[in-house]
């Protein structure tokens, strides 16, 4: 009896931690919080729905402690669901040290995140920039034609974080060698 109960206790402690991946799965299914996939989608010749246009708005922000300049080259784009589009983001590191950045996407309304498929995105990886370096980072996406009818407008936000301190050793070495 006692052993059984202790097993439940240990199991529930584990369950607390299991909630972390479970939550991610849950978000992926329901679109809570507008998290998007952090792996590339494959563009299969989807039928483009010319009868609908969807406005996608891009927002860029840098988090506290991140000195980079970060701007969306295209702030707003009208797309047909199923159509493949590329937008670019400009970044510059004005600091006198190399910095590794990580962009975190968030989509609102959250449901739209389920239908935003990125085939290529700078947000999939850490982005290193040398002191004073600038770059154009591409993001290629298409909107799933399954997007619910009532959504004709959604916003994609990228928040850029300074993750230099958490970068792996190989990344740090790569930075100094460049």
């Amino acid at each position: 009896m006692v052993i059984k109960l202790v097993t439940i206790v240990v199991g529930m402690f584990g369950f607390g931690f299991a909630l972390v991946p479970l939550y991610d799965v849950f978000c992926e299914i329901t679109g809570i919080n507008g998290k998007t996939d952090n792996t590339a989608a494959v563009y299969e010749s989807v039928i483009v729905d010319d009868s609908r246009t969807v406005t996608v708005e891009f927002l860029t922000r840098t988090h506290t402690g991140m000195p980079w300049k970060f701007e969306a080259q295209t702030q707003r784009i009208e797309v047909h669901p199923g159509e493949l589009n590329t937008v670019e983001f400009y970044v510059r590191n004005p600091a006198s040290r190399p910095i590794i950045g990580q962009a975190i996407p968030s989509v609102s309304p959250g449901t739209a995140a389920l239908y935003l498929n990125k085939t290529e995105c700078f947000c999939f990886n850490h982005q290193p920039l040398q002191a004073g370096e600038e770059a154009l980072m591409p993001m290629q996406f298409y909107v799933d034609p399954q997007l619910p009818e009532d959504i004709s407008f959604f916003t994609v936000q990228y928040t850029l974080f300074d993750v230099t301190a958490n970068a792996t050793e190989t990344e740090k070495i790569a930075m100094t060698q460049r």
Binding site: G34, H63, S108, Q157
Partner: peptide
């Protein structure tokens, strides 16, 4: 207002 995420 959640850090890193947008709400509307």
């Amino acid at each position: 207002a959640n850090p890193g995420f947008i709400n509307e």
